Simulated assay, not measured.
Amino acid sequence: MDFFKSRQSDQSPSSESQPKSTQRRRMIVALTGATGSVLGIKTLITLRELNVETHLIISKWAEATIKYETDYTIANVRALADHVYNVHDMAAPISSGSFRVDGMIIVPCSVKTLAAINSGFCDDLISRAADVVLKERRRLVLALRETPLSLIHLQNMTSITQAGAIIFPPVPAFYIKPSSIDDLVDHSVGRMLDLFDLDSTGFERWEGWKK
Rank of each mutant, 00 (worst) to 15 (best):
V141T: 04
I152N: 11
D183H: 13
L31N: 00
L144E: 04
V101G: 03
C122Q: 11
D10M: 12
D71C: 05
N156S: 13
F174Q: 09
R25N: 15
H55D: 03
L142C: 05
A116C: 10
F99M: 09
S9A: 15
I126K: 00
L114V: 01
S127K: 08
I74Q: 03
D183R: 09
I66F: 00
R137F: 06
D10N: 15
D2K: 14
L151Y: 12
A64C: 05
K42F: 02
L198Q: 05
L47Y: 07
L134I: 07
T70E: 03
V29D: 00
W61I: 01
A81L: 01
K210T: 13
V107S: 04
L80K: 01
D131P: 08
S179H: 13
V107P: 01
S110R: 00
P13M: 08
L140M: 09
S21I: 13
P19E: 10
N51A: 15
S179R: 14
I66T: 02
T161P: 04
K211R: 13
M104H: 05
A115H: 04
V84P: 03
L151F: 11
L193G: 06
G97T: 09
K20A: 13
L47K: 02
I106Q: 01
S98M: 10
T70Y: 00
R191F: 04
T65G: 02
C109Y: 01
R100T: 15
F196W: 03
Q11R: 15
K210I: 12
V111P: 05
G40E: 05
D123E: 14
V141E: 00
S15R: 14
L198S: 09
A129K: 06
S12A: 15
R24Y: 10
P169A: 07
S21D: 15
I94D: 09
I152C: 06
Q162V: 10
G190S: 08
R138D: 11
W206K: 05
L151Q: 15
S14N: 14
I74G: 00
Q23W: 09
S15N: 14
L151R: 13
L39D: 01
D183W: 08
G208D: 10
A130R: 07
G190H: 04
I167C: 03
A79P: 04
L56E: 01
H83G: 04
T147A: 15
M27H: 09
S95N: 11
S127A: 12
F196A: 06
T32N: 03
V133T: 15
Q8Y: 11
Y68H: 13
G202D: 10
E69K: 00
S96R: 08
E49N: 15
D2M: 10
T147K: 12
L80C: 02
G103F: 05
